[in-house]
């Protein structure tokens, strides 16, 4: 890795595509996000072009570039691919270089990654095929309630209590919300219940028996989720800076380390 070098990470996720460019000191010089379109190739080009423009660089000036995310194999200008599990673990350990549990709440899946003090992955788990408890779940259910995603955090913070959601399933949860509304529950309390149901899904996946580091787009948009999780576990809970870009940042770190 050279001090003056530039390294790229691109994360083509199920919902959003992210590109990050870092310098030799591992400082982020550009970070861009776009909604992932039906073409992973186009999404990759667009988000990378935006990041390059923000950094005032041409693609050739980026020494190494690593692609991650569901669309990682569709990024033809990447030098290498790594899974998002590797990249989120790398980013989380960069900010918290010790034995941690990384929890990435993404658009369509949740990942729990156990990382040792040296940053090596010990094990990982992903949610089952069902997307309940992920970003897609919140997005769909919020849409049912006419609540834009960016208002979820604010509404949840206004809640005087939390409505308990009993269902695993996104579709059934939508029906359950109707029942709560009929029973007179208000939107903030229901929204708080939805966020808490994501927390519960995480706690079902792992006992979180060490320090927790959260990454991913959901916690970036809904910081109260980290607070709700912290209230339920015995160990400190951290959120990485620019959590939505953690995958792309981890990929960029790996790109830098390849040299």
């Amino acid at each position: 890795m050279t001090v003056g070098g530039r390294y790229g990470g691109i994360d083509i996720g199920a919902s959003a595509s992210k590109a990050v460019i870092i310098d030799g000191a591992r400082k982020i010089v550009a970070a861009e996000v776009r909604r992932t379109s039906v073409s992973f190739e186009t999404s990759a080009r667009e988000v990378m072009d935006a990041a390059l423009a923000a950094a005032g660089l041409r693609l050739e000036e980026v020494g190494r570039l690593v692609a991650t995310g569901y669309g990682r194999h569709n990024v033809d200008f990447a030098h290498a691919t790594r899974t998002e599990i590797a990249c989120h673990a790398r980013a989380a350990h960069f900010y918290h270089p010790r034995r941690i549990t990384v929890v990435d709440i993404g658009g369509q899946d949740n990942k729990i990654i156990h990382v040792n003090a040296q940053g090596r992955r010990e094990s990982f788990k992903m949610n089952r095929k069902c997307a309940a408890g992920t970003g897609a779940f919140l997005e769909e259910v919020a849409q049912r309630m006419d609540v834009p995603l960016e208002r979820i955090d604010g509404l949840a913070r206004r809640a005087e209590h939390t409505v308990q959601m009993g269902s695993y399933c996104t579709v059934f949860t939508k029906t359950e919300i109707l029942a709560h509304m009929r029973a007179g529950e208000k939107v903030p309390e229901i929204v708080a219940g939805l966020v808490e149901s994501v927390v519960k899904r995480i706690l079902e996946m792992d006992p979180l028996a060490r320090e927790v580091v959260l990454t991913g787009g959901v916690v970036a948009h809904i910081p109260i989720l980290a607070e709700m999780l912290a209230a339920r576990v015995r160990h400190p809970v951290h959120v990485v800076p620019d959590a939505q870009f953690a995958g792309a940042f981890g990929a960029a770190l790996m790109a830098a380390e390849m040299e």
Partner: peptide, 10 residues
């Protein structure tokens, strides 16, 4: 596919 790839990375 991602699970398997990540597992082999591990």
């Amino acid at each position: 596919r991602t699970n398997i790839e990540a597992y082999i990375e591990q």
